[in-house]
Design a binder for these strands. Structure first.
Lengths: 240, 240
DNA sequence: CGGAAACTTGAAACCTTTCAAGAGTCGTGG
DNA sequence: CCACGACTCTTGAAAGGTTTCAAGTTTCCG
């Protein structure tokens, strides 16, 4: 609680994400306790790493601004994008088990983040019992997210892309951004990698959605024009 | 600690899985404390539910014997098998977040299990600090498992099936069973559902592995004959 | 403004699915 | 103990969705 930059310092209690991030569900007093251990990290630029595969687990990370991608590298050196992370979202749970990262995380654009240090994690859970529940909830959410991802990969290209867009839209909206006009962060190549589609298929399907008037595509920016149809596509209802 | 069936009662400290299940990493004294809250449940028969989609989260479940499958039902009523569970494995983490289940779990054969009740979860973590770490580790493992599943779905049929078999083999071996001769639990239909392959493709690919002498297939029973080749397939190395 | 990177788009190739028919397996009852 | 029926599995052939390949077009950034 000794801000080094009084003017600029954002702490948990005055952070816009405190209802979705680490402090979710905590009382004002508990948030103040939490601030003691949460570290505000410096800014990263596009392509810089939050952590690399094999790094020791240093703590849970909350994205404050910008986007990140989580990538897994297999034996053959192929890169698989595992997750995309928006402001207000937390990453690092996968590394708790073995206390080291099995993925790399890197900035998709300029990014800032906070960290709940690993060595404090245990102690702070005991100091703030509510936090334990919240950490477990976040971990549980991470399982659900990953399961949803698996389920979508099993559907045809159209549904897969629609599911991605609808999911992103919800996540942006939930965190206070526009759910109708947002950046997908990924290039077509990366999006294809994430959804297990060829670059060409992503491009074609996106164009098809645009032709039908369901959305407007401008590079990485998407404007959702007909969310209901997209949600029907996700649900598997056929649309001419 | 008041066994109702002194002769038959298996408690954590004398359970064969206590190095992989809830008690993993706990001292003898801690295991005794844990036993106080872990409930031994009755036996289920094939097709009976451990819990159903929408049920309130009653606690984490550890399979003591038999196999279970975790299935998700989407809006259209399609069934997606999310996970297969072996003896000594834990399920239920996905339900912590919303305190209710989004999947159903049911016995693939005769099955017995233990439960760490939800209402005790918080308290027991405070009584046994080591358990908190272990619960977090198990949750973290669950994320890793689900991620691995997603990654395998992205590969061709051959690799996908090989990955499933090698994974199952490792998991059986890790829990003290034979890693070379085991049951896949699933029918071809279910295995196809799980791996996102048509029933026919599962059958064909399995037959192909058998023809090449990598394994012996007898209904649901598999005997691994050449684990090294299978692992090469998983890793993506081509094999004539 | 120019070059590199990202994206679009068509056509052929390919893996997997679907459809369908037949063989095998299991459990129950005569 | 064998027969029967139901379910499961195998296997072939055709259909289909995606990928791959490749050649343009656009966009981005120095």
């Amino acid at each position: 609680m000794t801000p080094t930059q009084p003017e600029l310092q954002v702490t948990c209690h005055n952070c816009g994400f405190n209802s979705v991030c680490f402090p979710r569900g905590l009382s004002k007093e508990e948030i103040i306790q939490l601030e003691d251990v949460v570290q505000r990290r410096k800014i990263l630029h596009k392509g810089e790493f939050l952590f690399r595969n094999g790094d020791p687990f240093r703590g849970l990370i909350a994205i404050k601004s910008g986007m990140a991608k989580l990538v897994f590298h297999n034996e053959q050196g192929e890169e698989h994008i595992v997750q995309i992370l928006l402001p207000g979202e937390i990453l690092g749970f996968g590394a708790i088990s073995k206390q080291k990262h099995h993925c790399s995380a890197l900035a998709l654009d300029t990014l800032s983040y906070c960290e709940l240090p690993a060595e404090q994690l245990h102690r702070i859970c005991f100091r703030i019992p509510t936090l334990l529940d919240e950490i477990l909830r976040h971990a549980s959410d991470a399982i659900g997210t990953q399961r949803t991802q698996t389920l979508y990969i099993k559907k045809p290209a159209e549904q897969r892309l629609a599911a991605f867009l609808v999911d992103l839209s919800h996540r942006y909206a939930y965190r206070g951004f526009s759910g109708d006009h947002f950046s997908i962060g990924f290039t077509r190549q990366e999006l294809g990698n994430y959804l297990d589609l060829a670059l060409a298929t992503v491009s074609r399907t996106l164009k098809q959605f645009e032709k039908k008037g369901w959305l407007e595509v401008k590079g990485k920016w998407i404007r959702i024009l007909d969310k209901e149809v997209l949600e029907k596509i996700v649900a598997g209802e056929k649309t001419g």
